[in-house]
Design a protein around this nucleic acid. Structure first.
Length: 761
DNA sequence: AGCACGCCGACT
DNA sequence: GTCGGCGTGCTC
């Protein structure tokens, strides 16, 4: 009480509103309060509508100041205060400020990421319950002969439903259950004066009776759904439960099928019983109807989903229900991370190694790292789960920064698949397929079992090369090689998506000796058609599933057992499992083995483990064949014989032996201008300004993309900063951010700074 | 990001 | 003579 009194007496003199706007500028803008409004109730975090240039926009109040740097006559008054009370709580604001600083992204843009589109446009955040409508029949509707509606079967069915339902009132969710497209029919019935909207009292009455029903059903639900935990699961649940009131990071390292989800469900129950909310983050692909069903069976009426597939209104409903604490559990993708919560008590992040937790453009951030920071700010535990944890998380666990919980027992009796290296040195290959592999494929098909082939390259061939002079087809706007697509008869850039026709002769030497080099899924598909004629083959990659719903169609075909040979990219590794697959082959493991970056080996290993999980679920254990020219590669051998965990350890040990820290951090400064000299001068100035010598471990690479060519009307260079020390990098970036604006204005350079969302600690 | 101002080629 | 191209600069 005394707190608020002190606040308002202070703010009397603080009558300048410093706001952030959703623009790519780092500075804040100052406004006067709306005319005739007392600033006492203005608290940072509220939305304001302000005049901005010629338009008006929604801005976010950051602080109240005594005076502005600008001359008073330049200040405009804000138009209105949108929120009586801030929608973001103190912890949420702290998190957004942290993210803006840590990822060097403008504060207003970070705020934008925290609000659904409707609220960004200034819509009120009133609870959507008020919008829940209910309908009942009019007197005419009660009496009308249904035969007169014989030409509108939907409408007559609705009328019948109203008549049969006591007390004759149906609300939106009832109607949705009756018919997905109820709205059109209801609208025309209202138009015919057969149906009318109820008064709001009637709606409230219905809601009470509904919640009664839910409570009667609940105990029975729990009995049916709750599964007994094994010892490891019990330990995990008990350990996290004991820490429910403090910040701690737990790494739940559980092999496929070890029952991680059951641990999540028990912990959610624990948090709910303490009247706290829970945030569950999952990779995009995992947000399936099955997951939703499993959660809502256990926690009926308590869940909100939040992901890119929702409409603007659905997003707002979910956001507000969670923000106000009406719903208790938010399940969503990385875009759900910043949703304010009334009383958050636990964060769960499933498949923590998954790369979709990193936002790679615009506001680049790592949802995993930011979730950990959210846990720290809110003083609550964060649980990271994975069968193949990222190296950084394993490292953090080893450094005791995370507390590791292991689930090593499979719930069912399924035997793990057998991994085998197949040496293809000096072996004849047909589109990358060796004779022993082809023999195994033939054998498996003959037994009417399914085969899954993996190659992480779509298209026909990754390059078009001139046999006469060595010319290679490259993209004009990127530095990447163009990929040959045979079905669409074109060359396509997998970076920017640009297409062009396949030239008939070499543009450099005019020889008609252009040959496709390398392997892609299209090419293998073609070869397999020739080798196994009449076999039903399904190819799954971004090209074959571009049409909406076609992925689902193919997956069903596979699950029904109609598809015998399955060929595909990354897509195969995630989400779905195929019961009748007994042979998995990875056509080229070597490509992942020798990257400059250890992350390519890490991803390869994760992929092998995940894709192996697709096989051997049937009564018969599956086999996994890895084609390689390096059967003695220590990493491969470790992975095959000792598993992912040992593999990860040996990468970390290798780096330690080479005196390298486990990770490095990077940032990219991009600059562009109309003249190349301008770009260079700008970068030189920036470099001169930075005291790089202070940071011995900071590596500066650049300008990176040479030679400098004009692209899209501008010359652009980028400079890469790499460091083993995140703090050093942060300091350099701070120095830059403080000076770069003025340098750029003088030199007319456009610049942007991307901080790769690598790690937190 | 939008949006306006400004300075050079094809149009009635 | 203008319409409009996008390069450049600004928004409290």
């Amino acid at each position: 009480m005394s707190n608020t009194a002190a606040k308002s007496s202070n703010s009397a003199s603080h009558s300048i509103l410093s706001v952030a706007v959703s623009l790519p500028v780092f500075r804040l803008f100052d406004y006067l309060p709306p005319t005739g409004v007392c600033t006492d109730n203005l608290i940072p975090g509220v939305r304001l509508e302000v005049p901005f240039g010629k338009t008006k926009i929604i801005a976010y109040l950051i602080e109240l100041k005594e005076e502005s740097q600008l001359e008073p006559d330049k200040l405009k008054p804000a138009l209105r205060i949108v929120d009586a009370a801030p929608l973001l709580h103190g912890y949420d604001l702290q998190l957004l400020h942290w993210a803006s600083r840590y990822y060097h992204h403008p504060l207003g843009e970070v705020f934008k990421a925290a609000f659904p589109a409707n609220l960004r446009k200034g819509m009120s955040a009133a609870l959507p319950e008020a919008k829940q409508s209910a309908y009942k029949l009019t007197a005419l509707g009660e009496l009308i002969d249904l035969d007169t509606l014989s030409r509108s079967p939907k409408q007559s069915r609705l009328i019948l439903a109203f008549r049969q339902h006591y007390p004759g009132i149906l609300n939106t969710s009832d109607l949705r259950a009756l018919d997905k497209n109820w709205r059109a029919a209801v609208t025309s019935l209202i138009g015919k004066c057969l149906l009318e909207k109820c008064a709001s009292e009637a709606v409230a009455a219905r809601e009470i009776s509904e919640s009664d029903v839910a409570e009667i059903e609940q105990p029975e639900n729990n009995n049916r759904n709750s599964i007994l935990l094994n010892n490891q699961q019990q330990t995990a649940v008990a350990t996290v439960t004991a820490a429910l009131n403090q910040f701690a990071v737990f790494l739940l390292n559980g092999i496929t099928g070890s029952g991680k989800t059951e641990v999540y469900l028990h912990l959610i129950q624990e948090a709910l019983s303490r009247d706290r909310q829970v945030l569950v983050l999952v990779p995009e692909i995992n947000l399936t109807p099955q997951l939703e069903q499993r959660f809502s069976q256990r926690f009926p009426g308590k869940i909100c989903l939040f992901h890119s597939g929702l409409t603007a209104n659905q997003r707002q409903n979910a956001w507000v229900n969670i923000q106000q604490g009406v719903r208790k559990i938010l399940i969503g993708t990385r875009s759900a991370l910043f949703t304010p919560m009334h009383n958050i008590g636990l964060i769960i992040l499933d498949e923590e190694h998954d790369t979709s937790f990193k936002q790679q453009e615009g506001f680049r951030f790592s949802a995993r790292d930011t979730a950990i920071m959210r846990g720290k700010i809110s003083g609550i535990p964060v649980l990271l789960g994975s069968a193949t944890p990222s190296l950084e998380s394993l490292y953090n666990a080893r450094q005791q920064r995370y507390h590791e919980l292991v689930l090593s027992e499979r719930a069912g009796a399924a035997t793990p698949p057998m991994l085998r290296l197949l040496d293809i040195r000096n072996k004849k290959l047909d589109s990358g397929l060796s004779a022993p592999l082809l023999a195994e494929i033939g054998k498996t098909l003959a037994q009417h079992e399914q085969v899954l082939l993996f190659l992480n390259r779509r298209g026909f061939a990754p390059t078009l090369i001139c046999h006469g002079c060595g010319w290679v087809a490259r993209c004009r706007s990127c530095d990447a090689n163009l990929v040959i697509h045979s079905r669409d008869r074109c060359l396509r850039c997998h970076h920017c998506g640009k297409e062009q026709a396949i030239p008939a002769s070499c543009p450099a030497c005019a020889a008609k000796e252009l040959v496709p080099a390398g392997l892609g899924t299209e090419r293998i598909e073609q070869t397999l058609h020739g080798l196994f004629p009449g076999t039903r083959l399904v190819r799954l990659d971004r090209d074959s599933t571009r049409q909406k719903g076609s992925l689902e169609k193919y997956l069903e075909e596979i699950n029904r057992g109609e598809a015998e040979l399955i060929l595909g990219t990354q897509m195969l590794a995630k989400g779905h499992h195929f019961p009748n697959v007994t042979l998995v082959a990875i056509i080229d493991v070597d490509s992942g083995l020798f990257g400059i970056d250890y992350r390519s080996s890490e991803r390869l290993a994760q992929l092998i483990v995940q894709i192996s999980g697709r096989a051997g679920r049937a009564a018969k254990p599956g086999q996994v064949i890895l084609q390689t020219r390096h059967p003695d590669h220590p990493l491969l051998k470790t992975l095959i014989s000792n598993g992912y965990r040992q593999f990860a350890n040996s990468i970390l040990a290798e780096r330690q032996a080479a005196n390298l820290p486990p990770f490095s951090y990077q940032a990219v400064l991009r600059a562009q201008a109309s003249k190349p000299e301008t770009v260079l001068a700008f970068l030189q100035n920036v470099m001169a300004l930075l005291n790089l010598k202070k940071y011995p471990h900071l590596l500066m690479l650049g300008p990176v993309s040479a030679p400098m060519e004009k692209r899209a009307g501008a010359y652009r260079y980028q400079v890469l900063f790499q460091s083993n020390n995140r703090a050093h990098l942060q300091k350099i970036l701070d120095e830059m951010a403080g000076n770069i604006d003025s340098l750029a204005t003088v030199k007319k350079v456009r610049w942007s700074l991307d901080v790769d969302p690598v790690d937190l600690f």
